[in-house]
């Protein structure tokens, strides 16, 4: 019974949990106050036109809470409703939350689980993505942190991938995937020779949590476990990382160097080889502890801008 509240220290998979279960496990018990909850019935005004069912929270849960005693604003996307995609209401809720976080001078925690923009309300969704990016930058410019947590079913794609790139820090688990164009999109546009979306192992070698951690695209790699995400989030929130021009310039230089160093690689495993990982072929089979030990010394360090 995954839905049931339990007091035992049973392992709960982040991947399998719903948005609400993730928030309940991540945040300090009983500290969460939801804004615009399901009873407000702020549903999508567009989905009914397509004969599609709405969800009362439009696939995102937002609110205020404590995390390790630290006051935060939190948002969690429900990856199983419309692939966690951004629609008009869904996006507006996140924009509002980030602006409220800035007004209150609080850090934000984003539980991202999204395929990108919802095609049935694409213009509104695209606008929302830009507004979210602006709101994240504004919040970070004030010295607050925006932490992204990625390990859900839908991964973090499209505009969600760009939003992830704007976060102060990212925490990822092995099932988590981060990219802008997803596997099927690349295959459709560039052909199966370029990217075989059916090759699950290849998808994870190029977009999966381990690869993103190794190339510095994510800062923290954790087990697919809600308590591991919670511990990593609390630790990450303890650091202060301002967003400045010099941080961005350093990041630009790092990305240029990365392209030069790995630009010819055709597969994630070639990148790991170039990084100096001993026996790159064994990386996908390693458990978290083995993986962190084997790669700590060689991974590309993520910096603040990413």
């Amino acid at each position: 019974m995954s839905q049931a509240a339990t007091t035992t220290q049973r392992r709960v998979s982040w991947f399998e949990a719903t948005a609400r279960q993730r928030l309940a496990a991540l945040l300090d018990p009983g500290s969460f106050t939801e804004f615009l909850g399901p009873a407000a019935r702020e549903i999508s005004p567009h989905l009914a036109l397509f004969g599609l069912p709405a969800q009362f929270d439009d696939g995102i849960v937002i609110g205020q809470a404590k995390l390790g005693g630290h006051e935060v604003f939190a948002a969690a996307q429900e990856g199983r409703f419309m692939g966690g995609a951004f629609g008009e209401v869904h996006g507006a809720k996140l924009v509002g939350l980030l602006r409220a976080a800035k007004a209150a001078s609080r850090d934000a925690v984003l539980l991202l689980d999204t395929g990108g923009v919802r095609l049935q309300e694409a213009n509104a969704g695209e606008l929302a993505i830009s507004e979210i990016i602006r709101a994240i930058v504004d919040l970070r410019a004030e010295g607050n942190s925006v932490i992204g947590l990625i390990g859900g079913r839908a991964g973090c794609f499209g505009g969600g991938g760009i939003i992830a790139g704007c976060c102060t820090r990212l925490i990822v688990s092995e099932p988590g995937r981060i990219s802008v164009s997803g596997p099927e999109v690349i295959e459709t546009n560039r052909g199966v020779e370029e990217f075989d979306s059916q090759d699950r192992a290849f998808v994870w070698r190029t977009m999966g949590g381990k690869h993103r951690y190794l190339t510095g695209g994510a800062d923290c790699f954790v087990d697919d476990d809600t308590t591991a995400f919670r511990a990593a989030a609390i630790e990450t929130l303890a650091g202060r990382t301002p967003l400045t021009v010099s941080v961005l310039e350093a990041e630009q230089a790092r990305l240029k160097a990365r392209l030069k160093r790995f630009g010819a690689a055709k597969d994630g495993s070639e990148v790991w080889q170039a990084l100096g990982v001993t026996n790159p072929a064994s990386v996908p089979g390693m458990d978290t502890e083995e993986f962190l030990n084997a790669t700590k010394a060689v991974r590309e360090s993520a910096d603040d801008a990413r």
Partner: peptide, 8 residues
């Protein structure tokens, strides 16, 4: 108030 399930 209580909410259960997901629209999937």
């Amino acid at each position: 108030m209580a909410i259960v399930g997901v629209v999937a």
